[in-house]
Amino acid sequence: MNIIQQDLSQAAHAPLQRREMLKLSGLSAGYGPMRVIHDLDLIVSSGERIGIVGLNGHGKSTLFYAIAGLTGWQRGSIKLNGLEIGRTRSQGPGRYTHQIVRAGLALIPQGDEIFHGLTVEEHLDSGAFTPRSWRERQERKERILQIFPPLKKLMAVPVGRLSGGERRMVSIGRGLMGEASLFLVDEPSLGLAPKIGKNVIDALMALDLGSSAMVIAEQNVSLLEGRVDRILGMHVGKLKGEASAALMLHDHGRA
């Protein structure tokens, strides 16, 4: 833990410029005997928005989980803001996740992963885990309410009673509460009515990233087309290079 903290303070002093926010090299990950991610390489620079598209079961979520240390096993190098957070491990999923999150990762998982009994406000608070973001949590909550105005009226309501779209807002808002340098957003439009899904994506696009970076996994290419810096295709655990949206559509036979 100390190593991570030291490296983190060094990283904080680095000059603010376009740098590699996330660098994966030779990353493999999976669960038990199953290997989901195969020797994957990826570089995401600061200020960049990247879309990862691919069908169900091709490893988009597992890639995000591997970066967060939540898969059953993994090996290969993961550098978050210059700091090595990947390690070869075969057990203990989630054991280091909180340290990785503290090092600047915000994972907004698929299916929201909410705390059904906490109110919206407590939920947002729970996203503010670093001492600084905890002190500034009032201002941060204000900022999130500006992004998602419908949450204003729901602050005291338990999240279990919210609709799917509202839950997604809470889940994304929770991810935005901390001081992340990398946002991983897993299928933000999944299970939502098309219009609401589009609103959620709009909110993500309108967000000022500053020096941080964002990776969005989506199945619906048209939602990301022309709005992110790069779109990568994912197929059976491998990234299929940069693909333009039109090409992806063609690949999927929808054009």
Binding site: F115, H116, G127
Partner: peptide
């Protein structure tokens, strides 16, 4: 207390928001 309650409701999500189990 918030961390403990979060863990009571969803331990998996708790680690995602940076709550250390240990």
């Amino acid at each position: 207390g918030l961390e403990i309650r979060a863990m009571m409701m969803n331990p998996h999500a708790a680690s995602i928001v940076g709550i250390g189990v240990r």
